[in-house]
Computed example of a mutant assay.
Amino acid sequence: MSNAGENVKTIRKRRGLTQRELAAASGVSLSTIRKLEQGDRGGARLETLRMLAAALRVPTVRLSAGPHQEDASAATVDRWADVRRAIEEPPQSSAWVDDEPPTVTGVRDTLRTLSPLFAADQFDALSEVLPQLLREADALGAEGRAVRVRLLQLAGWLMVQTRQFSAAETALERALDDAADRMDGAATVNTLCWLLLRQGELGKAYELAVKWADETEPKVSRATPAELSTWGWLLLRVSGAAVRNSQKGEAADALRFAHSAAVALGREYAPGNDFLRTFGPTTVALKRAENASVANRPDVVLRLAESIPSAGLKPTSNNRNRHYLDVADAHAKTGAFADAFAKLQQIQADSPEWLPNQRYARVILERVVKGRRTLTADMRAMADVVGLPL
């Protein structure tokens, strides 16, 4: 039996509930609870644990069996092997014997030209060019500190996207160690919190986000846009960790403060044109819908989505694509399977290299498949894309 299954069984019995009663109270199927408690499942999804925890009235982390392990596909592991080596292995001092050594200007200019590839989730192209650029950034020494931190932030973000958590942690810890100022450090912590959330480390994510949000909190009346953006994102991470850990009050409070920061900004703002740090009223609205999705309120997700101007957003994984997954999930949960599938198709059309890495997409498509009597050819093709066996 898995630790998560043992925890569910122990607390369920303490509450005096049968498996059937827990299923009715939580919305988790009886078969899932049975398999979990019997140790027949490789590991429960965080959403499942959150629903069970809410019914059992305990924090989600009380049920968790520990951090989620990496589950990148074999093809993903192979594709990013050179990038992981460049992140994790010490640089070779002899790498530039026959060539001109890299310069700060050259590395910075190259990174600037690659920025659209990061924003558009062009994974194939990035896996080819990043190893060399990471080695060049390492060779710059102290004078290349700022550009190296930025590159490591982006590399760490990519590793989280592709569920290669060990390499992500290495890249982000290196960036944090090398950060020149509080804003750089906070930008790195923002992604570190996301890494912890993806691993199921809700308590650690919450504590880290709270610590940095407290340390970076500005006087709103005198804050610069960059300060408001940085603080606002950390508050969103606080809220995201809290809602996943069934801490509804803390989640709502953090989201309210983030909304205040967004109102003070009055618009979507990206410090230094950094798409990862874009923050404003729309970003907060997207996260409000995400929180509703985590709390299993598909009706609220769909209602909020109607007022979010998502069509005007670029199709990046940091905002619109993630939101569309929440909308697709809400449609699937309410039986609107055609609408759910249409959203998945829209994401695939906009970001074909991003969607296959999303376990969430597999869960949504599985709901669609179970709700349909027959599958179309497009649905079967989508199953291959997201790795759902039929």
Rank of each mutant, 00 (worst) to 15 (best):
N3D: 14
E6S: 03
V8D: 00
K13P: 07
K13G: 08
R14Y: 04
R15M: 07
G16A: 05
L17H: 07
R20F: 09
E21G: 05
A24V: 12
A25M: 11
A25D: 14
I33V: 13
L36Y: 06
G42R: 12
L46W: 14
E47A: 13
T48P: 01
R50V: 01
R50Y: 00
R62S: 11
R62T: 07
P67D: 08
P67M: 04
A75V: 08
D78R: 07
R108A: 12
D109R: 15
R112S: 08
F118I: 14
A119Q: 11
D124M: 11
L126E: 02
L130Q: 02
L130P: 12
L134K: 06
L134N: 06
E143A: 12
V147C: 09
V147S: 03
R150V: 07
Q161G: 07
A168S: 13
E169R: 09
D178T: 10
D178P: 00
D181N: 15
A186V: 02
A186P: 06
G200R: 08
A205R: 07
Y206W: 03
L208Y: 00
K211L: 06
E215S: 02
E217P: 01
E217F: 13
P225L: 00
L228G: 00
S229Y: 10
T230C: 08
W231A: 00
G232D: 15
L236F: 00
A241Y: 00
N245S: 11
Q247I: 06
G249A: 08
G249S: 12
A254V: 04
F257M: 10
H259W: 14
A261T: 03
V263M: 11
Y269A: 05
A270W: 08
G272N: 03
R277E: 00
R277P: 06
F279I: 00
G280P: 06
T282F: 03
L286G: 02
N291F: 01
A295L: 13
D299Y: 06
D299R: 02
V300N: 04
E306K: 15
I308Y: 05
G312I: 03
K314F: 09
P315F: 09
S317V: 09
N318G: 13
N319H: 15
D326G: 00
D326Y: 02
D329G: 05
D329P: 02
D329N: 07
K333P: 03
A336F: 01
F337S: 15
D339N: 10
D339F: 02
F341Y: 08
F341E: 15
Q346A: 15
I347L: 11
Q348D: 08
N357H: 14
R359I: 14
V363Q: 09
D378M: 03
R380F: 12
